[in-house]
Design a protein around this nucleic acid. Sequence first.
RNA 1: GGGGCCGUAGUUCAACUUGGUUAGAGCGCCGGCCUGUCACGCCGGAGGUUGCGGGUUCGAACCCCGUCGGCCCCGCCA
Length: 599
Amino acid sequence: MKEFKLENEERWKRTHRCGDLTKKNKDQQITLVGWVASQRDHGGVIFIDLRDRWGITQVVFHPAQDESLIDQAKNLRMESVIGIQGKVVLRPANMVNKLLPTGEIEVTVSRLIVFNESKPLPFMIKDPCDAIDETRFKYRYLDLRRPQMQKNLFLRHRMAQIVRRYFDENEFVEIETPFLMKSTPEGARDYLVPSRIHQGRFYALPQSPQTYKQILMVSGFDRYFQIVRCFRDEDLRADRQPEFTQIDVEMSFVDEGDVMEVMEGLMVRLFKDVLGKSIHLPFCRIPYKEAMEKYGTDRPDIRFGLEIVGLDEIVANSGFHIFDETINQAGKVCGIRLPGVGPLSRKQVDEYTAFVKTFGAKGLVVIQITEEGIRSPIAKFVSDNTLQNIIMKLKGSVGDVIFIVAAESSVCLNALGNLRVQLAQDWNLINRNIFSLVWIVNFPLFEWSEVEGRFMARHHPFTSPKETDLDFLESDPEKVTAKAYDLVLNGSEIAGGSIRIHRRSLQKRLFETLGIDQATAERKFGFLMDALEYGAPPHGGIAFGFDRLVMLFAGEESIREVIAFPKTTRALSLMDGSPSEVDQEQLKELGLKLDLKDK
RNA sequence: GGGGCCGUAGUUCAACUUGGUUAGAGCGCCGGCCUGUCACGCCGGAGGUUGCGGGUUCGAACCCCGUCGGCCCCGCCA
């Protein structure tokens, strides 16, 4: 590798950026800096595509120029960083590159400096990237040079700015809350941070700034927001990272409708300013119960039909023991109808059966309505009458395929809810041009946890019950509805919030129902309970999953595509190698000893 | 914690089903040619601990077990 000198770098201050030059700049003497995006050596003339954040400009070396310049240009490698000085010239009409904004011109180079040569690359900087994820993550700095990744991060930036402007205009104040906070019992696993000064004690990284923002309401800030990192030590998914970004919002003296209205305004603004789309207000609101029954999930994608239909009455006492048994054990028999694409092959049916089994369903009953008649493995077990009733209830006609799951109620709905989405994808039933925004409301406040053997807060333990349900809090917790709301975009939960409890007495009752004894509640949440006793206003709020929102706006399938430095599904950072072991000295200073699980 | 797919040259893949001579190809890299390309083109060349460890076998990229890593899903994620 040749040495080069960086003499008098001032001279290499750029006059333009790589996306700037057009025929208006004809004959100007200019300086550009950037990366070598491609080098095309024709033996005589040499072309370089010079790239920076703003674009690409073709620069040309002509053989008439001095030898050392040509020699340098010949040896330029991809992704080396260079500066050039030269003259802007018009390209001959038949050489114009219509794909480039700068395609009408090129720069005839008279001077070249190589700021830094690049080694041969592990992969080409191009869209789409042809490297596997593992390689992309290891060389994330190269991956982030790709136009698509830059575009995604610019989009993320723009959305963050719009969010800030919107809330600022509406008199929300952005206040930073601590990253080092108290570990709390409920919820996800905490990331812990050992304290050096107080050995044996730990901070936790926030799962969300929930308690702080409530306390800011007690302090009278009335309207708060923050674009803030949150941390949850749980297993990862395409839409879940251990650290992720939330748009956190809280308001005082509001009810559910007030919070939703402000958020609808934000969504309207984002859709208009980012995507140029108008969306209709107010968003449709679906009660939790209806969402579960019709779509088998609390985050329904309503861009397509395939709604779930209950078949309990029709198949009760049908003589088909799987149906009968399910209903006897208080389970559910439900079906969905896939219109007009049948009949399906044996292989397709097997695949869908395997699919519902991953959600705990024991099997999948398929009824195919064909020109030749009805085909179904259950035809020999149930009466023609029952079969006809099922088809009638689902409004089936020739070419349709009906899928039925019989199982414990939540398993049945969950399996069909997921099958519904899978079918829509497989059979192209989703209109990609539509954005469906729905509020899910009237959530149950509690959920019975088999694992814990107690009721758990479905949202979080500070969520207010509806006043009408207060009497059931102790007697029949499952009946209590929460003042909670989720916002769902195309089947993705992008925000969730609630009106909070603002009186200590009610908060205490809630902890009791959750099986958190008074001492524990006092120890873990005493500061919040205390605050509620000093003039806490009625308040509520919401939090958006910012990464998911950006992902959906970017049309990406994974939030890793909109996070600069993401973790893998094993929560590793392949670029910097975190998490990593630390020196004994560091542990000692913190008063920690390792007691590792045997492998 | 569980299930599925995957790991072969710098890189992306093929060869694995059915074990058998020297593990192939594209891109990149190196050398040569080329004055209008824009993923330039043409000719030639180098480049491999088949993730790692063990087993089966006369013989393993291929079969088996374990392990590490990537992706997707279930559980989990107040």
